[in-house]
């Protein structure tokens, strides 16, 4: 006999449970965790290199590098003298909470103020999977075009900060930064938007100041705020 079985369960519940575990671990260590996302080649690793250069004497930074294959990015980051772990997803298009959890033993979290999780280059899937971060940040490079907020809305909706990178290329590409701003803010009016060039360094100070401020907020509120 056919019968209907009620369920009502979140499909991503297993990932969410592990994300909560990670979040507790991060809160205990009192550090700010950012999940950094973008399409391939938008400049995630370059942004990290430049951010580390600006902030390394003020805060202690660690990086989890997510890539489908290779340890190329982790080698780039380790040259900056910060803690870094490479995760290879072996084909998976995003990082999930379990992968992050398994990488934490390789990091000395108590000696970090900021941990950046560099997600797999992809404008779609990473936005759907929390890893226990305090906030998501995303990069869109001007070479990708100003239509991307229309085509990949979830990532813009989920992010706290949007970095518009490669603005030094604006004379050579058909991209209207005003349209990116307008379209992104329609999706998410709370987005902090930074126009930057990792190549020339333009705009990076504004981003670094904001990031440093977020770290201070976490530190001020982090002590004993959660058990």
């Amino acid at each position: 006999m056919t019968r209907k079985v009620p369920v009502v369960r979140d499909i991503l519940e297993a990932n969410e449970r592990l994300a909560e575990d990670n979040r507790r671990t991060f809160r205990k260590a009192g550090l700010l965790v950012i999940n950094l996302m973008s399409g391939p080649g938008a400049g995630k690793t370059s942004l990290l290199e430049r951010t580390i250069e600006v902030l390394q004497h003020e805060i202690r930074i660690g990086v989890i590098e997510g890539d489908i294959q290779s340890s190329y990015d982790a080698e780039r980051i380790s040259q900056k003298g910060v803690q870094v772990v490479q995760l290879n997803t072996g084909g998976a298009c995003h990082l999930d909470s379990n992968m992050i959890k398994s990488s934490l033993d390789a990091l000395d979290l108590d000696n970090l103020d900021l941990l950046v999780v560099e997600n797999v280059g992809n404008l779609v899937c990473p936005a759907e999977f929390n890893v226990g971060e305090d906030m998501k940040a995303m990069i869109l490079s001007v070479a990708e075009g100003d239509d991307k907020p229309l085509k990949y809305p979830l990532m813009f909706q989920e992010s706290r900060a949007l970095l518009i990178n490669k603005i030094d290329l604006l004379p050579y590409v058909n991209c209207d930064v005003g349209k990116i701003r307008e379209r992104a803010l329609q999706l998410n009016a709370n987005l902090e938007i930074f126009e930057i060039s990792c190549r020339t360094g333009e705009g990076l100070d504004g981003w670094a100041d904001w990031l440093n401020q977020q770290v201070s907020v976490r530190k001020a509120g982090g002590d004993g705020a959660e058990t």
Binding site: M1, R3, K4, V7, V8, I11, L12, A189
Partner: peptide, 20 residues
Amino acid sequence: GVRVEMLSGRELSVESFEAE
């Protein structure tokens, strides 16, 4: 106003299933 709270649109759930 742009201070908005999302009520629906992010669902991803198993509601029920038919079985024997």
